[in-house]
Every structure is written in C-alpha cells, then in structure tokens.
C-alpha cells in the first residue's frame, strides 16, 4: 500500500522542483527555442520562395535571350536574301546595259555597212552606166557606119516610142 500513498516530502519537493524548472524554462528556454525554430522555418520558406523566383527569372531571361537570338537570325536571313537579290539585280541590270550597248554598236555597224553598201551600189551603178554608155557608143559607132543600118535604127526607135 505504501506505493499508493503519496509521500508528503516528495510531493513538496516535486512541486518546488517542477515550478522552478517551469519558470526557468518558460522564461529563458522555450520562447527562445520556439522563436528560433519559427524563424528558421520562415527563413527556409523564404529561401524556397526566393529560389523559385530566381529560377523563374532565369527562365524568363533565357526565353528572352532565345527570342533575341531568333530575331537576329531572322534579320540575318533577311539581309542575306536581300543581298542575294541585289546581286542578281545588279547582274541583270549590267547584262541589260551590256545588251543595249551591244545592240547599239551592232545597229551602228549595220548602218555603216548599209551606208557603205549603198555608196558602193551607187558607185557601181554609175560605173555600170558609164561602162554601158561606153559600150553602147562603141557599138553604135560600129553599126552606124552605113546608111541602111541608120534608117533601120531610126525606125525601130520610132516604133518604140509609138508603143509607149
């Protein structure tokens, strides 16, 4: 039965010990520990949040950079295309110019040739005329040496004139 009857001395000391322990810990112990634990939990939460934000920002920056790179690439392609076009244009133009110039040259040459031919023709014609007159004179001199032949020729010429 002794086990079940609380001993006064022990109750007394237990009460004092517990009260003292309680006041000491309640004043200098638990509040500090709990504050620090709360603070640490807060800090950790804050850290996680910060990390999340930083990652988000990093992702954003990366996307931005990607965008710029793409834009630059597009611009480069555009420029290349433009340059190519310009090149072909210039070539085309040069070719046309050359063609025109050649045409001009050829035209001039043709004209010159024509001119020359015409002159040659005229010269040739007058030469031929002169030759034929010379020939005809000689022939007529030969044939009109008798009277008969002269009369025949006059007649013939007259016929011809009548016909006209």
């Amino acid at each position: 039965m002794e086990l079940f009857t609380p001993d006064f001395g022990l109750v007394f000391w237990m009460f004092i010990a517990f009260i003292v322990l309680f006041f000491v810990l309640a004043k200098w112990g638990w509040p500090v520990i709990i504050k620090m634990m709360d603070q640490r939990a807060g800090t950790i939460d804050q850290g996680v949040e910060d990390a999340r934000k930083a990652k988000e920002q990093l992702d954003n920056a990366r996307a931005e950079a990607q965008k710029y790179v793409k834009e630059a690439q597009a611009r480069q392609a555009e420029m290349l295309r433009e340059a190519a076009k310009m090149k072909s244009d210039i070539i085309e133009e040069a070719r046309a110019e050359a063609k025109k110039a050649a045409q001009k040259e050829m035209d001039a040459a043709r004209q010159a040739i024509d001119q020359a031919r015409k002159e040659a023709e005229l010269q040739f014609r007058s030469e031929v005329g002169r030759f034929s007159v010379d020939i005809a004179e000689k022939m007529v001199r030969a044939q009109l040496s008798n009277d008969k032949a002269q009369t025949e020729l006059v007649n013939k010429l007259l016929d011809e004139i009548e016909k006209n």
Partner: peptide, 18 residues
C-alpha cells in the same frame, strides 16, 4: 522533507532538463 533518493534524482533530472 528530507532529500531522499527520489528527491535527489528529481534535482538531477531538473538539472539535466535545464
């Protein structure tokens, strides 16, 4: 109110916890 074995142990425990 003697400091018996249990009371002494009690003090030791108080010191330990503190």
């Amino acid at each position: 109110i003697s400091i018996t074995k249990n009371v002494a142990a009690l003090f030791i425990v108080v010191i330990l916890v503190t």
